[in-house]
Structures are given as C-alpha cells and as structure tokens.
Simulated scan of single mutants.
Amino acid sequence: MENWGLQLPYPLQMSPPKCPILTTFLLSNCRITSIPEGFFKHMHALKILDLSRNPIMSLPISMANLKNLTALLLWGEELHGLKKLEILKGIFYDLQSFNIYVQSLHYQEEPREYVIHVGKMGCRNAIYSRKYIELCGCDFYINQIMLPPNIEELCIEECYLHCREEDLLFSKFIKVPLPTFASLKFLYIHRCKNIKKLFSANCVPANLQGLWVTECDELEEIIAS
C-alpha cells in the first residue's frame, strides 16, 4: 500500500503472476493507472481486493475469474455496472451521482447491506441497521433526491431545503415503485435550515421506531396538521 513507484504492467512475453492461494491483496494509494487484462487470471482464491485511491479508469476482464471475491474496495469507480454487489460502503460526492446509482437499482437487485454517505462525511458513528444512507451538506431542490426502496435508516445533516413555506421535507424525495419509506426504521435530522414541516398525516413512515430532530431552529411541525 502507498507504494507510488509500483508498476503493475509487465512485458508481453511474461505470463501473469501465479498466486493460486492468495486471499488478500491490498493495493491502495499506489498511483496505479491501469491493470493488465490477464493480471488476475491465476488468483482464483482471492477474497479481498483493495484498489482504492488509485486513478484507475477501468477494471480488467480477468476480474470475472475471481469467483471467491467477497470484498472489492474502490474509490472513484462507476457502481451501476456491479449487478451482483452484496455489500456497499462508500461516498457519493454529489446528489447527481447518487441519483444515477439509485436509478440503476430499478433494473437490478440492491445490495443486502449498504452504508452510503452523500456529500461530506457527517458526525454520526452509531448505525443500527443494514441499510443506511447519510445526506450531509446537501441542498434539497424540488424532487431532487432518490432513495432505494428498502432503506432502513436515514440521516439528514446540515442540509438546506429550497421550498415554499407549506412544503414538507419528505415531499422532496422522488417516489420509487415500492411504497416509499415502507422499511424506514430510524430517522435523524440535524442542523437543517429552512425546514418547517416533516410529514403530512398520510405519509408518516409506518414502521418508524426512532426519530431524532436536533438544532433545526425553524421546525414548526413534525406531522403537518
């Protein structure tokens, strides 16, 4: 890791590295720009591969041979092509990129576990569910945010709501095919400006178990009358 002089490309006359019992391969922050197509050809036992913090534009086809891979760590790679992804932990730096990913979930199965941060990293540490999303430092416009249908925990922190006075915070989320927020159990709203109302009487998440609202000085109603 952090070996800036490391070069993965090898001469064409050389065969790919043969590491048949290798299970963990950590290559983070090595300034690798490309990986030869056959590089992983003889690494069938590989379970954990860390390629994060490298300016890699595409992954080699030989990755399809890694049948035992359970963890792939990336930083700055497109996600909507990973159709069999089971666990996702990562950051989207803007709402547009996040929306594109959520939109792709309409055509493929969503991960069974995810921890996703959108915008900047917030201050929450404790997470109580398998499907958590945090929106921090984002500006909410009309119908701008998409969320996965089975989200269980949502944190909204230091966001600004662009709306009319009568608008509800949860009217800004684009509705998905399944009942919106049907699985939502925990909701945190912290230091958000221009929020006056959260829910209407007919859109309160039915399975909500915990609600924390702190330092939202303009809030008037949790459930709008």
Rank of each mutant, 00 (worst) to 15 (best):
F173W: 03
G76N: 15
L211N: 13
T180Y: 00
W4L: 15
Q13A: 05
R191G: 01
C203P: 05
I133K: 00
L79I: 07
P177Q: 05
M57E: 12
I223G: 01
H42I: 01
S225M: 08
T33P: 04
C163Y: 06
P177V: 09
I32Y: 05
W212M: 11
A126W: 04
I91F: 07
I91T: 11
D217C: 11
H190M: 13
L8P: 03
S171F: 03
N54S: 12
K193Q: 10
Y141Q: 10
Y114I: 09
N29W: 13
H106F: 09
N65Q: 08
I174F: 02
I156N: 09
Q13C: 00
L184E: 01
L69W: 05
E220R: 03
I91Y: 08
F40L: 09
N99A: 02
N125F: 00
H117M: 04
E166Y: 10
S97K: 12
M63K: 14
N207S: 06
E78P: 15
V213A: 11
C30D: 15
S225I: 07
Y188K: 10
N54A: 11
L198F: 06
W4S: 07
S200W: 10
L161P: 02
A126Y: 12
E134Q: 13
P17E: 04
S52M: 00
K120D: 03
D167K: 01
L135R: 07
N143Y: 02
N143E: 03
I100Y: 05
I48C: 05
G122S: 14
K47I: 09
G122W: 01
F40C: 07
I142P: 01
M63T: 04
L178Q: 12
K89R: 07
S52C: 12
D94W: 11
T214C: 12
D217W: 08
P20G: 00
I127T: 08
I151W: 00
I56Y: 04
G81S: 06
A64S: 14
K193Y: 11
C136D: 01
E220A: 02
L12S: 12
A71T: 14
